[in-house]
């Protein structure tokens, strides 16, 4: 992978201020929603982003899309720092990075026909498809996502959840993007329909060379579709690496807890060793000192309470734990590689 990443984040941070700033007196609270996030997404690759609710997955996505301005750091598209762009120049980039949303019920305008939903972007970017070819292109796109070209004049309410998600995918593809940010694209779908949409996303990636930033809380789905995985906890990436390596030998105790908590559809494995986390994610307004994970960590030592762990690298994986690589978690994840 010597080529330039299509999308890159460098030391990206986002703070949200809570409450109004006062003229005098104390600073308002800030929430460090995203702290020091680095990633490099290459064409044709998928990075999975996992973590519990409130860990900063969506904040990171919004900052990468520049829907919110980051507090510091860089977002690079094809090597260029897009934060330097003016809002107008930013618009030209929007076609290259599209989004597929979680809820196929609320993300499609109920008063728009499928044709209008798919072709709306061409009003902003008229040069993508000449007006004379638009009807044909809508039909092509519908065919590409496994819908019937005759569906173009129907409305969202006439479709099932899975079909609506296909319409959302067609809408994203209409602008011929290089990157698609998938925000929990299958979590609202039934199991039997989920597999269809996952297969569709994988096929489109192969055919069109798309890069995906794939946000999900379902680790099995992330495992299936991703090349790399980033695990976030309280705004930081605590572990990052090729998905096979991270899932086979996680080095951050939080990753271990997430992986071992996933219910396995095999009754023979129900008595396996599970690392159960006590408590819940602490409030980001007043995060614990030292390693933010230490209050829930069974292996926490004094250093964890006092010092924020620096990233530790082994090969291609990174873990922010003082003891990364020194702890043996094989008992908790053995079932992931043996079955």
């Amino acid at each position: 992978m010597t080529d330039t990443p299509i999308l890159e984040a460098r030391q990206l941070c986002k703070d949200y201020a809570l409450g109004k700033a006062r003229w005098f007196g104390a600073q308002p609270f800030t929430i460090k929603a995203v702290q020091d996030v680095d990633f490099a997404l290459y064409p044709g690759q998928t990075i999975g982003l996992v973590g519990e609710s409130g860990c900063g997955k969506s904040s990171l996505a919004r900052v990468v899309l520049r829907l919110n301005e980051p507090t510091s750091g860089e977002v690079r598209f094809k090597g260029e720092n897009i934060l330097a762009r003016s809002p107008r120049e930013m618009r030209d980039l929007r076609r290259d990075v599209q989004v597929i949303f979680q809820d196929p019920y609320s993300s499609l305008d109920p008063r728009f026909s499928v044709r209008r939903i798919i072709s709306e972007g061409w009003e902003v970017f008229p040069d993508i498809v000449p007006p004379a070819r638009r009807a044909a292109r809508v039909a092509e796109l519908l065919d590409l996502v496994g819908l019937n070209p005759s569906d173009a004049d129907r409305f969202p309410h006439q479709f099932s959840g899975g079909q609506r998600q296909r319409i959302g995918i067609a809408r994203a593809l209409a602008l011929e993007p290089k990157v698609i940010l998938c925000d929990e694209p299958v979590s609202a779908l039934d199991v039997s329909v989920q597999a269809q949409v996952i297969n569709l996303l994988a096929r489109l990636q192969k055919e069109l060379g798309l890069a995906y930033l794939f946000i999900a809380h379902d680790l099995s789905v992330v495992h299936h579709i991703s090349d790399r995985v980033m695990v976030m906890y309280l705004g930081r990436v605590v572990e990052d690496g090729p998905v096979d390596q991270v899932f086979a030998a996680p080095r951050h105790p939080y990753t271990v807890a997430l992986l071992s908590a996933v219910p396995v559809p095999d009754p023979k494995l129900r008595n396996r060793e599970v690392l159960v986390l006590e408590g819940e994610v602490p409030s980001p307004i007043n995060p614990p000192g030292g390693c933010p994970f230490h209050p829930r960590c069974a292996h926490a030592q004094d250093i964890c309470r006092s010092k924020v762990p620096e990233p530790r690298y082994t090969g291609e994986t990174m873990a922010r734990c003082h003891f990364a690589g020194e702890l043996d978690f094989s008992g908790y994840v053995r079932h992931l590689s043996e079955a």
Binding site: D190, S192, Q194, Q196, V264, L336, A339
Partner: peptide, 24 residues
């Protein structure tokens, strides 16, 4: 059988997922 086979499993990876065609 279809439901069980179409679940992406955390212990296997890659390839096309089995999927039941159509919708309920």
């Amino acid at each position: 059988r279809g439901l069980i086979r179409s679940m992406p499993r955390i212990d296997t990876r890659g390839g096309e997922l089995y999927s039941i065609g159509g919708t309920p």
